[in-house]
Design a protein around this nucleic acid. Sequence first.
DNA 1: GCTTGACTTGGAGTCTACTCCAAGTCGGAA
DNA 2: TTCCGACTTGGAGTAGACTCCAAGTCAAGC
Lengths: 152, 152
Amino acid sequence: MSSCRIGEAAQHVGMSADTLRYYERIGLMRRALRDGGGRRAYTDAELERLRFIKRAQAMDFKLAEIRQLLELRDHPPSARVEARRLAHDKLAEVIERLRTLRHLRDELRLLLNLCLGAEQCPILELNPHPLKRVAPAIRKRQPAARHRHAAR
Amino acid sequence: MSSCRIGEAAQHVGMSADTLRYYERIGLMRRALRDGGGRRAYTDAELERLRFIKRAQAMDFKLAEIRQLLELRDHPPSARVEARRLAHDKLAEVIERLRTLRHLRDELRLLLNLCLGAEQCPILELNPHPLKRVAPAIRKRQPAARHRHAAR
DNA sequence: GCTTGACTTGGAGTCTACTCCAAGTCGGAA
DNA sequence: TTCCGACTTGGAGTAGACTCCAAGTCAAGC
């Protein structure tokens, strides 16, 4: 059972010390024990928990979702079913986003190709069909972070 | 040359009146003319500009990028080359993001399948290889909006 | 004339995930 | 002992894209 200070811990898991403090503040991590000088002493278990958080973020889970996953890890009994649901939901999101992006890719390619020949650059209209003043039927924007979550 | 007030304009283009005010405030739209009562009077050209903004957003362009596109529209001479570059850059982004998401989709599918048979739910480790304590080589998260852009 | 919905302005607030600041402590190295 | 990097805390700030607030005006309809 070793422990390390915040700077070292941060380095181990590839995050900033400030991020670790932030996670403690918002409750994603429990309050770390302090050493005699009042400094945080991270255990191996805590480093592992941080690594889990990092992996989850790499998989596009938001902190709120990660919080849920962490809670499931803390209460194994019914964890499996719920964890499956979270992963399933995330998969559905990803698949949907893939659809949207494929469509967007195709649209952009088309615009770029048309730009080569057209007299009017279609990119400046974002409309591949200059003669039809109809906006392209692009899927509504993926809802960005809520803040501008003008749910687009 | 007709004109309409902000509420009507907002409805026409599918945005909120507040968003239109915001766009004027940040300079994405020029200051609209005011009627005798001090209220904004949107021209058809301005409605069209707003529609362009909306189309660009649907194509994952950020407001800063949209600003650039709008400027190109205002100065046609060298617009084409620059517009091509912006669209090309966006296409590259989209393609890269598609790669990342495909990988993530596969990873999630694997985890969900493994979850069915494993004694330990691999989702709660976010690691398809329980015997190998190595984090999955997931691509670094797509940089979200800068704010949390914790470049993920 | 009165009512009321639409609108004005400047500025603050929201969301998410951090990051920075300021003032002070700790402790290892010189 | 002194120096200085690492660390503490509470709180404010950042980014991007909105959205809400408060106090007041406008004008159509009754």
